[in-house]
């Protein structure tokens, strides 16, 4: 029972991070119909920026006082910078290819991804060594439930992710801007005829997707304080799992991305806890294969019907 609950807590915490990252994949796919493979690198940059800013304002790991104000400052800085990064990537790398075949854009995305990973290894940027993230948030047991310690940090991670997802959901389904995004995702030329500024909407989509990824990066860095170097496979694997979450939930579907994130978290952690911890990645990608075989549109996705 204890093990079950503990696994549940862990999987929800990590699953909500997958969900946050998956949102960026799914929103860009919804509008441009291509997989932005550089998205996982924006997440990585979010984590690393959080580290850089935290060290700058908090000093070394041993001396830093946990402080919500500092944590918020770090989170906002990471979100703003990654938002600007997402905007720049779209502007410089993808926009010139707007009329090009989708494969070209896909290859460009992989190029952007490699570029960011390797740029991050420069000594005056993030460097090539693992670094410990300063403890910005208090990590103490909040309460014990049936022998399971629920940590304050887990609650903060899940809470922040949930708030951001609700915010995004509201932007997309409750605002005029969101209506513009949904119109562009349905048909860019028709949206343009309605007076929707398509290019601006696309920029905006990249910015908010990148902000969500930055928030996930911050939360990840606060939860797992040993940060690997930028080109480390950890980042790629995390990004890939978030991508799987987007596909499993139904790529292009925002609520599907959130659901897919939680589902992938559950499958990974329960598989690791009850089957074998060595195969945790296998479970995730096995789910991807199964979904692609039996329900390629994803759980909440609807198979596209050719429009007449």
């Amino acid at each position: 029972m204890t093990k079950l609950l503990q696994t549940l807590v862990d999987s929800i915490a990590v699953g909500s991070l997958y969900g946050l990252i998956a949102l960026g994949y799914t929103m860009v796919y919804g509008i441009l119909q291509f997989i932005n493979f550089a998205h996982s690198d924006v997440f990585m940059v979010g984590a690393w920026l959080s580290f850089l800013v935290a060290v700058r304002i908090g000093g070394q790991t041993a001396t830093v006082e946990p402080s919500v104000a500092k944590a918020l400052l770090v989170l906002l800085t990471a979100m703003v910078c990654c938002g600007a990064l997402g905007f720049t990537i779209e502007r410089l790398a993808y926009r010139p290819l707007r009329q090009a075949p989708r494969l070209n854009v896909l290859i460009t995305a992989i190029g952007v991804s490699l570029f960011i990973e390797n740029l991050g290894q420069l000594k005056w940027l993030f460097g090539a060594m693992p670094q410990p993230m300063p403890r910005l948030l208090p990590d103490r047991p909040l309460f014990a439930l049936a022998g399971v310690n629920v940590n304050l940090l887990d609650v903060i991670v899940v809470g922040t992710a949930a708030v951001l997802m609700l915010l995004l959901n509201w932007i997309v389904f409750g605002t005029k801007l969101g209506r513009g995004m949904r119109a562009v995702s349905y048909s860019p030329p028709t949206a343009a005829l309605m007076g929707v500024p398509v290019s601006r909407i696309i920029s905006f989509t990249f910015v908010i997707g990148s902000c969500a990824a930055a928030a996930a990066g911050f939360l990840y860095a606060t939860k797992y304080i040993t940060l690997q170097q930028p080109a480390h496979e950890t980042w790629i694997r995390l990004g890939l799992k978030a991508f799987v979450a987007a596909v499993v939930g139904g790529i292009g579907n925002i609520r599907g991305a959130m659901l897919g994130g939680l589902l992938i978290g559950l499958i990974e952690f329960f598989g690791a806890a009850y089957l074998s911890p060595n195969l945790r990645d296998v479970y995730v990608f096995a789910v991807l294969i199964l979904v692609l075989l039996f329900r390629p549109a994803g759980i909440l996705g609807r198979a596209t019907v050719e429009k007449v």
Partner: peptide
């Protein structure tokens, strides 16, 4: 926009 309601379709005309 088949993914919109009738009201949303009308509203987007005034974007």
């Amino acid at each position: 926009f088949a993914n919109f309601t009738v009201a949303e379709n009308l509203a987007i005309g005034a974007y």
